[in-house]
Amino acid sequence: MSSKPLYVMLCSGEHEKIQLAAMVASVAAVSDRPVEVFVTMNAVLAFERGKSPAERYQGGHFHEMFKTQNVPDAIELFGQGKMLGEMKMWACSMVLDLKHWECDKHLTEDLFDGPMGLAKFLADAETGELVTI
């Protein structure tokens, strides 16, 4: 039987917070728990298409250790969560509007299920548990 869905609101652009969100979301998804991730504010910038890891991830005490040691890449972890579990990712429609970006042109390939508004995400999140990072 599936667990209560987990909703993750990722708003920080700090490397270690994006890493934590990727770990929480992917491990929950592969543990038979439906997961939805809403990416907003500075966090959206880390998912810009074509960025190298050095450009993508910034800040946090563990940032340098993540880069130099064998820590799974956050984008790859999100991808594994989607591939091996039940997980959806949504990009904040307000941020996309401000940046004049579209999911399928400006964000990392094959990761996002589309844009979503905050009200819809919050309404959906009433069915499960919401974590904000």
Partner: peptide, 17 residues
């Protein structure tokens, strides 16, 4: 060995699939 959390778990899950 050498992979950090949750790397070993994810490798296990991929193999079990």
């Amino acid at each position: 060995r050498g992979a950090f959390c949750p790397g070993p778990l994810m490798e296990l899950i991929a193999a079990l699939k």
